[in-house]
C-alpha cells in the first residue's frame, strides 16, 4: 500500500538518517536532480552505506540518473545489491528505455546472486514524448509496478505555465492514469511543490485521489501526513463499504437478484469499490464495522 512517497536527497546525511520517520509509505532516495554533477559519486556511496546501516522500515525506492548519462550504469551497479523494492528511472520516454533497464537489472541481479525480477520499476514520466508512450511504457516489462508523473519537467517540455491548480497537467494526469489502469498497474501523482502551503497540498492530493491515483510523491516531510490522509478512506466511506457488502451477503442469503441500499441499486462497480475500500482499510488498520 503506497499512498505517499517521500523524496530524500541522496547526498544529505542528516536527512538520510531520519528518512523513514516521517510516516511515508515509501521513501525515494534520490541520486538524480537532488545531487549536483560533482557529487554523484559521493551520493551513490552514501546511499549505499545508509541503506545497509539504517535498515529503513518503509518501502525503498531509489531514483537513478537517466539512460544516456554517464551515471546510469554506475547507479544501477551500485544500487541493485541493496535490493531496493523499486528503481525509479528518470526521463523515461518509451518502451525501449524500460526494456534496457529490465535487462540490466536482470544482469545485475544474476551477478549479485539475487532472485530475478524481484526489483520492480516505477518509471518517472516527465516529457511530452513519455506521456504519449505511457501505455507502452507500462506494458514494457513485468517489472513495471506503477507510472509516476513528474509535472515540473513535463510542463516545461510543453512550454506550459505551471500552476498550483494544475489545469496544464490535467491531460497528462488523465493519460498516465488511463495507461496505468489499462495495464493493471499503479499510478502515482507528481509532488506539490509549495512546501509552505499545506492547504494547497491537501487540495491537490484530494484531487489526485478523486481522479484515481494510487498515491502521490512529496518533496517535503511536511506533506506526508496530508497525502496519507487524502489517500486513506474516511470513516464514512469505510462504514458505507461494509454496509454494501453486508447488503450483498443478505441479498445472496435471501436469493435476491437485485439488491438496493438506501434506495439505490447496488451494481458491480459499487461492490468492487466497496471491496477495495474495505481491503485498504484493513491494510491501514482503520476502523470499520469489523473493528468496533
Amino acid at each position: 500500500m503506497i499512498r505517499s512517497l517521500l523524496f530524500i536527497p541522496g547526498n544529505n546525511p542528516g536527512m538520510l538518517l531520519n528518512a523513514d520517520v516521517h510516516g511515508a509509505d515509501a521513501i525515494i532516495l534520490d541520486l538524480e536532480d537532488a545531487v549536483s554533477p560533482d557529487q554523484k559519486d559521493a551520493a551513490r556511496i552514501l546511499v549505499r552505506n545508509a541503506v545497509r546501516a539504517l535498515s529503513y522500515n518503509t518501502q525503498l525506492v531509489i531514483r537513478v540518473n537517466p539512460l544516456g548519462t554517464d551515471y546510469y550504469l554506475d547507479d544501477l551497479k551500485a544500487v541493485v545489491p541493496l535490493k531496493p523494492d523499486f528503481i525509479m528511472p528518470t526521463k523515461v520516454d518509451g518502451e525501449e528505455y524500460i526494456k534496457d533497464l529490465a535487462e540490466r537489472l536482470t544482469a545485475f541481479e544474476k551477478e549479485n546472486g539475487l532472485e530475478e525480477g524481484k526489483i520492480k520499476i516505477i518509471p518517472l514520466i516527465e516529457t511530452a514524448e513519455g506521456i504519449e508512450n505511457a501505455f507502452r511504457i507500462a506494458k514494457a516489462s513485468k517489472r513495471v509496478f506503477g507510472l509516476f508523473l513528474g509535472a515540473e519537467d513535463y510542463s516545461a517540455d510543453l512550454r506550459a505555465h505551471r500552476t498550483k491548480e494544475g489545469d496544464e497537467i490535467l491531460y497528462a494526469r488523465g493519460r498516465i492514469l488511463n495507461a496505468a489502469r489499462a495495464a493493471a498497474i499503479e499510478a502515482f501523482d507528481t509532488p506539490f511543490t509549495d512546501v509552505n502551503d499545506e492547504e494547497g497540498l491537501e487540495k491537490d492530493a484530494f484531487l489526485a485521489r478523486e481522479m484515481g491515483f494510487t498515491g502521490k510523491a512529496a518533496i517535503s516531510p511536511r506533506h506526508v501526513s496530508g497525502i496519507n490522509k487524502a489517500f486513506s478512506p474516511t470513516k464514512a466511506e469505510i462504514d458505507y463499504a461494509y454496509e454494501v457488502l453486508m447488503a450483498i451477503e443478505e441479498g445472496i442469503r435471501l436469493g435476491k437478484g437485485a439488491v438496493s441500499l438506501r434506495g439505490k441499486m447496488i451494481d458491480k462497480p459499487i461492490v468492487d469499490r466497496a471491496k477495495r475500500v474495505v481491503e485498504t482499510a484493513k491494510i491501514l488498520g482503520l476502523g470499520g464495522y469489523e473493528n468496533e
Binding site: P13, D41, A42, L46, N49, A53
Partner: peptide, 17 residues
C-alpha cells in the same frame, strides 16, 4: 557529528577520487 556509515562513505569517496 557524522554517524559511522557516513564517515565511511566520505572516506571511501575521498580515496576513490
Amino acid at each position: 557529528g557524522a554517524v559511522e556509515c557516513t564517515l565511511r562513505a566520505r572516506t571511501e569517496t575521498a580515496i576513490l577520487r
